[in-house]
């Protein structure tokens, strides 16, 4: 809504035509990341905005201040596929900084149990003690102790996180990719259309019959592996634009089998919330130290006044009694 308002406002003024174009460019840049044909070896060219730049004061006419309401309006999660040990879901309307935090927490900060201490009483098998201990740590382990091979051990499990040792990591993988976006800029027909289809993963481009000619259309951009094959064809490379939606994350989480995948993601989000709360309470107690000092000072002062008063009253009473005696 705001983008539109800005465009309408400046469109009235003929002198600011350049600015209108500029604003259009920004909303494009803000929405997607362009995969340029010039950037061989890298997915993105250096002059394109790969990092986030949607901060207040960065773009004229845009209000990039954090708003929970706006976030809640745009944000959505779609579960694509879910089994006990595999989960694919789309997280839309969030910045890479946040999505990456969840991914990192999944890999290394959701606590699990793993074998930490192995007491080996007897081991005549072909696996050495230290190798066995290491392997046991990386449960699940499948051993087939044949005859005359004996393992007599005591195992101690502890709770830990993947940051300490990979054996505690509750996931096999946790990753995300951005949703690919393929735009065909001009109609591609005939032999060129067939070649274009072959440049992408199966199912991405399909051929439709338009006026008796085969024409290439984008069907499932999601299936694309973002190969850069099309840029090798000189006649095709300028007919398509490859980009990715900046805030559409396709998460893929595979559990090791200890916890269900949806529980893992919930736990990861809770871990980040826990971090926030820890530091919030730290900040509050930091303020309390100053307050404590002030309160202590005040108490000492009041106590002093009170004692002084009591002392003065005592003196007064004493004087009064003495006076009465006389």
């Amino acid at each position: 809504m705001e983008d539109k308002f800005y465009l309408e406002k400046t469109a009235d003024d003929a002198d600011e035509e350049d600015e209108v174009k500029f604003a259009g460019d920004i909303s494009l840049k803000k929405a997607s990341i362009k995969c340029s044909s010039l950037a061989y070896g890298h997915f993105y060219s250096s002059n394109d905005l790969v990092h986030s730049s949607d901060f207040p004061g960065q773009y004229q006419g845009y209000d990039d201040t954090w708003s929970q309401q706006k976030f809640e309006e745009n944000f959505r999660i779609d579960i694509i596929r879910m089994t006990d040990d595999e989960l694919e879901f789309d997280m839309v309307g969030v910045d890479a900084a946040i999505a990456n935090a969840f991914r990192r927490i999944l890999l290394s900060e959701v606590p699990t149990m793993a074998i930490e201490k192995v007491f080996i009483y007897n081991n005549t098998s072909i696996i050495q003690d230290e190798v066995l201990a290491h392997r046991l740590g990386l449960i699940p382990i499948k051993a087939d102790p044949s005859l005359k091979k004996e393992i007599d051990i005591k195992l101690h499990c502890v709770k830990g996180i993947g940051r300490d040792h990979a054996k505690f990591s509750p996931v096999a993988t946790a990753s995300y990719r951005l949703l690919p976006e393929i735009t065909i800029l001009r109609p591609v027909t005939g032999e060129m259309a067939e070649r274009l289809q072959k440049c992408f993963s199966p199912g991405v481009i399909e051929l439709e019959n338009v006026n008796g000619k085969k024409q290439a259309v984008v069907k499932h951009a999601r299936k694309d592996t973002c190969s850069r094959e099309v840029f090798r064809h000189d006649d095709l490379k300028d007919l398509v634009k490859l980009s990715r939606i900046r805030d559409h994350f396709i998460f893929s989480v595979e559990s090791t089998g200890i916890l269900q995948t949806d529980v893992l993601v919930s736990e990861a989000i809770k871990v980040l919330m826990g971090k926030c709360r820890t530091f919030l309470s730290e900040l509050i107690t930091m303020g309390d130290i100053k307050l404590d000092l002030f309160v202590t000072f005040l108490m000492v002062f009041l106590w002093f006044i009170f004692r002084m008063k009591a002392y003065l009253i005592k003196i007064h009473v004493h004087v009064y009694r003495n006076h009465k005696k006389e």
Binding site: F71, F75, R76, I269, C276
Partner: peptide, 18 residues
């Protein structure tokens, strides 16, 4: 920190309902 916490609450709520 408060904003991040509230944002996470919404993410968690959305994820669980999805």
């Amino acid at each position: 920190l408060k904003d991040l916490n509230i944002m996470c609450q919404h993410v968690l709520k959305t994820f669980e309902s999805s």
